[in-house]
Amino acid sequence: MQARGAVSIPRAWPNWLPAFGFAALLGLALFGMELLEPFFRWVEPDARSVIYARASFVDLLGRHLLVVGAAGAVTVCLGLIAGIAVTRRYGRDFLPLAGQLASIGQTFPPVAVLALAVPALGFGTPAIIVALMLYGLLPILRNTLAGLDGVDPALKEAAIAMGMTPRQRLWRVELPLAAPVILAGVRTSITINIATAALGATVGASNLGDPIIAGIINANMAYVIQGALLIALLALTVDSLFDLLEQQLRHRPTD
C-alpha cells in the first residue's frame, strides 16, 4: 500500500499554499531564467552561452506535459477499467493474476522499461509514451484493486439490501470509498512518469530532460542546473496539487 503523503505536514498556512508556491516558482523559472544569468555565468565562466537556447523552456515544458498527460490519461482509464472488471463477478477469475501482475510489474525499473520499449517501437515520442503507459498502469491497477478490496463487505451488503443495482453499488458505494487509495495510485504513477519522461531526452523525445542531457554531454553545468530546476519544480508542483486533491477528498462532506 502506498503510504506516500500519509504523514502530513502541520499547516498553519492555507493548504493551497505549497501548490501555489511551487507553481509560481515554476512560472518564474520558465520566464525569468535570464534574470539568473550572472549566477550561471559564475558557474560556467568559460562557456559560450549559459542559458539553454535550443528550444524555449515553455516549449520543453509543454512537450513534457503532453507526454506525461497523454500516457496518464490512457493509464488512468485502462487501470480503472481493468481494476473494476476483475473485481466484478464476470471477471473474478482474472483477479489473482491481475494482483500478481501488478506486484511483479512494480519490480521492473522504469529505465529498463523505457530501454526495452525503444527496440520495439523505435526512437522518439511514441516509444516514450508507450513506455510510460506500460509502467504507469501498474500502480493504478494495484491501488484500484486494493481500494475496491478495502471496501467494508458489510457496506456492500447494506447497499444490496437497499435494493441498489450493481451499477449503482459501484458508482455510489465502492468507487467513492475506494477513491483516496485510487488517487494515491494515480499520484505515484504520475510522479514516476514525470521522472521517467525526462529520460526520454536520451531516446530522441525532446522535453525538459534535454537541457540536462545537453549539459552533461557538453560539460556545461549551467544547462544541467536549468533543466534540473525546471523538472524538480514541475514534479513538486504536480505532487503538491495531488496533495491538495487528497485533502479535499478526505475532508469532503459525508452524505
Binding site: V7, A195, A198, M221, V224, A228, A232, A235
Partner: peptide, 25 residues
Amino acid sequence: RKAGFALLNFLQTIPSLALFGLLLA
C-alpha cells in the same frame, strides 16, 4: 518526526535525473 518525513517526502518527489543534475555543480 514531521520535519524529517516532510524532508524525505520532498526528496523522493524530485525526479532522479534532476537530483543527479543538481548535485553535479
